[in-house]
Structures are given as structure tokens and as C-alpha cells.
Amino acid sequence: MSAIAPLLVVSGLVVRYGAVTAVRGLNLEVADGETVGVVGPNGAGKTSLLSAIAGIVPPLAGLVTFAGAPLSGIALEDVVGRGIALVPEGRHIFAALTVRENLLLGATVRRDAEAVRYDIERAFSMFPILAERRHQPAGQLSGGEQQQLAIARALLSRPRLLMLDEPSLGLAPKIVDQIYALLHTIKSDGVTVLLVEQNAERACAVSDRVYVMSGGEFALSGNARDIARDPRFDAAYFGVRMREQAGAS
């Protein structure tokens, strides 16, 4: 274990929308080069967690530190400049813009035009289907292709941390295979990944560590392989309280 501080540190994060508390005082760490998965059912607060880290929603309380510097309170447009790229739920590609233009937008904060061109070509070789359709409007791509585009776009900012929100949502299993193979490649490139997923099996297969989130809190956390085999997993995922179970029997 290295003594270097983790790349991303979230402590005491609270996110509230009006009367609804989506995230209840979470603590989370992601070390440089790690792939961390946050799994949980719909409504667990996973998207709110990512949104708070990315600066899309302001947290009610708590601190987010990235690469040693506080992230809370900076403008949304500045987050990607710090090295965090988000692939949001639902992909949010720009349907009216071409595939190439979408990729170009991923490099919005970069000033090195030559390297950006290189990275775009690299993206096309990594995602051949995007290369084929480079001048087509992105709205004509299939769901799986759009997901690839969203990931490629995020990588174009050369992020230190890549955050993905439900990359498998709405995609056929075969396509999801492709996406996750991609994630393995990205991982081996040394990019730190924070992955949010409903599909726990997939997430556990690619992650180093996993947090199980339910009802705004982490019910369980640990090494991915151990978590996958943990008998308390189902209960943690579906939010059944341990104590109540013990009391009822």
C-alpha cells in the first residue's frame, strides 16, 4: 500500500433535493489507477453522488477533494479542467452534431490542437465504428455506438479520473460486453475509473473495489471479488437492514 493520498476523497457528502435526501453523509475514496464501482438499485442515489462530485448539483454538506485540492464550490465548467470527465446517465451525446464534432467537444478545455487531432485519430482506431460514421450526425448512431461515443468523448479530455453513470443501461448484453471490454482497456491504460452501475455482476468483474449503495448510504464496501461472494450482498443491495433481519428472526 502506498502512502500517497487517494486521488479522489469524498467525505460526509450530503445531497438534498428539496425534501428528499438522496445522499446521506457518504465517505468514498478512489486511489490513483484504481477502478471503483458503486452498485445499487434505482433510486439509491448513485447518480446524485456522481453529479455532486462533477459539480452538477451543489452538495448540502461534505467535502470533495481531488488530487489534493478541494473540488467543492468550483464552477461546473472548471471540473473537466481539473482532470475529471463524466459520462452521464443517458449518454447525452449531441444528436445534431457529427461524431467528430462530439469528440472535438470532449477536448473543449485543451489547448494543444496537434495532440487533440492525434487523440481523435486514436479514438477512431480504438472505436472503429465511430471512424466509419465520423461525419454522420451522432443521433443516427445506435445505443451502443452512442455509449462508445460518450466514452470516447470523455477520454478526449485526457482525464485522470473517468466517471461513468450506468454505462450498461438500456443496452443489449452483447453491446454491454463490448463496453466493458472497453473499460478493461481504459483501465489498463492507467486511467482511474469511478463506475456507477445497477448491474452489480458486471461492475464487480471490472472493479478493484466496490461500494454497495442503498437509500443514500453505503451498506457494504470492500474488495470487488470478496463483495461479489459476500452473503450479505443481496440484503445490502436491496436495502434490507441487517439489524431488523436479526430482530425479526
Binding site: I56, E77, D78, V80, P88, H92
Partner: peptide, 8 residues
């Protein structure tokens, strides 16, 4: 919003 997330 997505444009802003990308840094626009």
C-alpha cells in the same frame, strides 16, 4: 448542461 460539463 452537457456542454458545460464538457467545459464550454
Amino acid at each position: 448542461r452537457m456542454a458545460r460539463v464538457l467545459g464550454v
